[in-house]
Amino acid sequence: MSTNTTAAKAPHPPAADPTFSALQAFIAEQEHLHSRETGKGPRPPIEITRLALQIAHNLRFQHNWTDMRVHYRTSANTGAGGQTVPRRRPMISGLPPQRVYVHPDEQIDALEQQRRERGAGGGVGVGVGVPGMPEMGREREWVLPTHLRENWTLRRFGEVFDTLSAVPPEGGGGALFREEVGGRGQRVDGEEEEGADGDRDGQKEDEEVDGDSSAVGENPWRTSQPKRLLLATLDDDSTIVYYIVHDGIVKPRQN
């Protein structure tokens, strides 16, 4: 896109414009950072990048996700030939405040385990005797940014899944917000203003790709199931809806 080059020429992020909203400022700043990178292959269209950034912003501040990262390139272990390739469409990954998806069998398993522990502890132990769902550990999720006006095909979904690892790599892609990695962001309000100063050189890691996607507490349920992503669909009124998409047949949850 030609607009991309104009953004690259700008010496400072245009986010300094005081009339910009927080979202505008964020997008402008990220575009500026992204354009400063040495160009490797084709970039996604500017509107797709902006779309991804807007959705990341929504997840961060509307849904309290943390450790938001944008992936402009594929991971080494999923791309063809074991090298990273530019994505046609950037993917987002992030850590939701609580688990987004629990497979029904995993849920049964967790409840069963909770029941067993309660029986063993005599009902007076710490954390036992609590009715309801046990706490499930958080898991990083892939987010696919889309717009409602787009038309999709099965082929494109297939291609997107083919480039994904089962679990988003820790530290892969580029971090979007300054915060403690893996923790809850403390500076929710002042985030954009600080970022808008343009002093975030070390923040955006240069597409460092983590080939090993296994996190510390790898959930066997997740790796044994088909891949999943969160389909984020933006409408013109900036409403965003989120749907979980599985790459295969996964039985539904019993909500």
Binding site: D247, P252, R253
Partner: peptide, 11 residues
């Protein structure tokens, strides 16, 4: 044949 399952994300 390749299939995709879609469920509401609950958010």
């Amino acid at each position: 044949v390749r299939t995709f399952c879609i469920e509401w994300g609950g958010m």
